[in-house]
Amino acid sequence: MTRRTSLPGAAELFRSTGRSEPPAADWFDAGQAPSSHRARPGQARRGSPRQKHTSKITVYVSDEELIALEHSRLALRAAHGVAVDRGRVVREAVAIMLADLEENGENSMLVRRLRQDAS
Score class of each variant (00 low, 15 high):
residue 34 P to R: 07
residue 102 E to Q: 11
residue 45 R to P: 01
residue 52 K to Q: 11
residue 24 A to M: 02
residue 81 G to D: 02
residue 105 G to D: 04
residue 45 R to Q: 13
residue 37 H to W: 07
residue 89 V to W: 01
residue 78 A to Y: 04
residue 10 A to T: 08
residue 76 L to W: 12
residue 40 R to K: 12
residue 1 M to C: 14
residue 8 P to T: 00
residue 50 R to Y: 11
residue 57 I to E: 06
residue 105 G to S: 11
residue 108 S to D: 15
residue 37 H to C: 11
residue 30 A to T: 10
residue 56 K to P: 00
residue 112 R to N: 15
residue 106 E to R: 12
residue 50 R to N: 14
residue 77 R to M: 12
residue 92 E to K: 00
residue 86 R to K: 07
residue 10 A to H: 06
residue 58 T to L: 12
residue 110 L to N: 11
residue 3 R to N: 02
residue 25 A to Q: 14
residue 2 T to Y: 06
residue 24 A to F: 01
residue 47 G to E: 01
residue 33 A to P: 06
residue 74 L to I: 06
residue 46 R to W: 07
residue 35 S to I: 08
residue 95 A to V: 03
residue 81 G to F: 02
residue 16 S to F: 11
residue 109 M to Y: 13
residue 78 A to I: 02
residue 110 L to T: 06
residue 104 N to T: 06
residue 68 A to Y: 07
residue 77 R to D: 09
residue 113 R to E: 13
residue 64 E to M: 10
residue 1 M to V: 08
residue 26 D to A: 08
residue 21 E to L: 14
residue 21 E to A: 11
residue 56 K to Y: 06
residue 4 R to Q: 09
residue 113 R to K: 15
residue 78 A to D: 15
residue 78 A to M: 07
residue 99 A to P: 03
residue 115 R to I: 02
residue 24 A to Y: 03
residue 69 L to H: 06
residue 64 E to P: 03
residue 41 P to V: 08
residue 49 P to H: 09
residue 45 R to K: 15
residue 75 A to M: 07
residue 94 V to Y: 12
residue 112 R to D: 10
residue 110 L to C: 14
residue 70 E to L: 13
residue 12 E to L: 09
residue 34 P to K: 05
residue 64 E to K: 08
residue 6 S to M: 10
residue 103 E to W: 07
residue 7 L to A: 09
residue 25 A to D: 15
residue 2 T to M: 08
residue 101 L to G: 00
residue 48 S to F: 08
residue 64 E to N: 06
residue 72 S to G: 14
residue 35 S to D: 15
residue 48 S to Q: 08
residue 67 I to K: 06
residue 14 F to K: 12
residue 76 L to E: 04
residue 113 R to V: 14
residue 67 I to A: 15
residue 110 L to S: 04
residue 53 H to G: 03
residue 74 L to Y: 00
residue 5 T to V: 09
residue 13 L to G: 07
residue 93 A to M: 08
residue 84 V to Q: 01
residue 21 E to T: 14
residue 59 V to F: 05
residue 25 A to P: 13
residue 72 S to T: 15
residue 17 T to R: 08
residue 102 E to S: 14
residue 30 A to D: 08
residue 69 L to D: 04
residue 51 Q to N: 14
residue 19 R to M: 12
residue 32 Q to A: 15
residue 19 R to I: 02
residue 86 R to V: 01
residue 4 R to V: 13
residue 30 A to G: 05
residue 8 P to D: 10
residue 83 A to V: 06
residue 78 A to P: 02
residue 53 H to N: 05
residue 16 S to H: 05
residue 68 A to T: 10
residue 86 R to I: 05
residue 15 R to P: 00
residue 66 L to Q: 05
